[in-house]
Design a protein around this nucleic acid. Structure first.
Length: 479
RNA sequence: CGAGGUGUGGCUCAGUUUGGUAGAGCACUACGUUCGGGACGUAGGGGCCGCAGGUUCAAAUCCUGUCACCUCGACCA
């Protein structure tokens, strides 16, 4: 096996030098987005959108397998509707965009451009839910939403972004809670098995939970620089919205009941997670299962007889099972190597006169820069294996990074020192009081990421106030 | 919202101090030669110097205003 992963792509700032700059360089150079004429909004270019389409395809399939149906709600919410649930409107009001004019006429009631659609779904559910026989309602919509953020970054935080939002109604609290957990696990599984990004599953503290929710579950991923990215959330609402919107159904006991509700969402932010988890100094590194192009075929010495033909033949063969592209342009092989590395294509197939003579080709893995020579006889199997290997390499690298940057702290002094010196997850016990969360934010600059599921908590005291601890919490700096 | 910075071909920038015919590299187009880690030659195309006023014989350059974007902070699912 050959290895020349040290080669550098020009024009990308090194990660260690300036991570934020590196991120912007990658996003631009890999042609994922263009800045738009509207402040804080982005043009998602074909290559970036193709990644989103693959993400959609994978998630949508999983949703539908669990019985969810896609719908489309309006993009406008009348002010009176938004205001029906108190916590909800308080959480979102500071960052909504308002439509006040229709043509030349001032509107009687201003309309907000949806920042999320709980209120619209509730208003609709009120009309279509009458009996327990109408439940559960398992709806999802793919759309864009608008949140008037002050600071924006491509994919991570923009004024308008694409996402999906699932909204479900259930007969019982248990059923709704189960749905909340199920969908969190769908997200977690998608991250780990499709995106090769390990996540911590857990529950948000009251301070960090969704406006109007009883409980918010989250998956938290760690980026290469040690910062956390909240990557998908699943909320349990109980019957709070149902009461506010007066949604009732006739139960099996022939009496009126309030249904129990959930919502869950994942956005184009996951593309930011992919970039910052797997990317390196040569640019983007895409996990094979969502890469728009999984295999790039680079013919060498295209002027020599038979090379292009052979490359075309391999493309036709592989296209049956994989997403394959052939670059037969006049650019030099070296240029092409660098180009597709920058764009994160997982696997490069080199084919030249020497290979053709020996009935072989070269496979180069973007994930670790390794190269291997394989026979053309069982190429399909070789490619399949290589793509799976790449997935595992990426997942394990990300997991290693997370392990390396996860710390444990037992007292205030320790946690402040760790947070000041390092980026990463800090595991520490917490008493459950808001005051301690706020103190840690102020003194250490960290927020609670989640109370993890499935991790044993030993008896101990709150890292901040020293009183008896209630929960183990992952803390960190977040995007 | 606070502090700092930047606006000149598609991109990165020089030119502004000291006003005097708008430049470079990359990218792009055509043709030819090349091809196992960002090839080369020849010939081309492309700019109301962010916008609006002002000073001047003359403004990318000086003055006033304004807009946009970037970085950091504050805010923030």
């Amino acid at each position: 096996m050959l290895n020349d992963s040290s080669k550098k792509v020009k024009d990308i700032t090194s990660m260690n030098e300036d991570f934020a700059r590196w991120y912007t360089d990658v996003v631009k150079k890999a042609e994922l987005v263009d800045y738009s004429i509207v402040r804080g909004c982005m043009v998602i270019r074909p290559y970036g959108y193709a990644i989103w389409e693959n993400i959609q395809k994978e998630l949508d399939r999983r949703f539908k397998e669990l019985g969810h149906e896609n719908v489309m709600m309006p993009m406008f919410i009348p002010e009176s509707l938004l205001q029906k649930e108190k916590d909800h409107v308080e959480g979102f009001a500071p960052e909504v965009a308002w439509v006040t004019m229709g043509g030349n006429e001032k509107l009687q009631e201003r309309l907000c451009v949806r920042p999320t659609s709980e209120t619209l779904f509730c208003d609709h559910y009120k009309n279509v839910i009458e009996s327990y026989r109408d439940l559960p309602k398992l709806y999802n919509q793919w759309c864009s939403v608008v949140r008037w953020e002050k600071t924006t970054r491509p994919f991570l935080r923009s004024l308008e972004f694409l996402w999906q939002e699932g909204h479900t109604m259930h007969e019982t609290a248990e059923e709704a809670l189960k749905e909340t957990e199920t969908m969190l696990e769908v997200y977690a599984d998608f991250f780990e098995n499709c995106l090769a990004i390990p996540v911590v599953r857990g529950r948000k503290t009251d301070k960090e939970k969704f406006a109007g929710a009883e409980a918010t579950y989250t998956i938290e991923a760690m980026m290469h620089d040690g910062k956390a990215l909240q990557s998908g959330t699943s909320h349990y609402f109980g019957d709070g919205f149902a009461k506010a919107f007066d949604i009732t159904f006739t139960g099996r006991d022939n009496k009126p009941h309030f249904p129990h509700q959930t919502s869950w969402g994942m956005s184009t932010r996951v593309i930011g997670a992919i970039i910052m988890t797997h990317g390196d100094d040569n640019g983007l590194v895409l996990p094979p299962r969502i890469a728009p192009t999984q295999v790039i075929i680079v013919p060498v010495a295209t002027h020599k007889e038979g090379v292009i033909e052979k490359a075309e033949e391999l493309k036709a063969r592989l296209s049956k099972d994989f997403r394959v592209k052939l670059d037969a342009s006049n650019n030099s092989p070296g240029w092409k190597y660098a180009e597709y590395e920058m764009k994160g294509v997982p696997l490069r197939l080199e084919i030249g006169p020497r290979d053709i003579e020996n009935n072989q080709c070269v496979l180069a893995l973007r994930a670790d820069g390794s190269k291997k020579i394989v026979s053309l006889d069982n190429l399909e199997a070789e490619v399949e294996n290589a793509l799976n290997e790449i997935h595992d390499i990426l997942y394990n690298k990300a997991l290693e990074n997370r392990k390396e940057k996860t710390y444990s702290c037992n007292n205030l002094e320790e946690i402040v020192k760790t947070a000041n010196e390092k980026n990463g997850f800090i595991k520490a016990l917490w008493c459950g009081e808001l005051a301690c969360e706020e103190e840690l934010k102020e003194k250490a600059g960290i927020t609670s990421r989640c109370i993890p599921f499935g991790e044993e908590m030993e008896d101990g005291v709150c890292v901040c106030c020293g009183k008896k601890a209630k929960n183990l919490v992952y803390w960190g700096k977040a995007y």
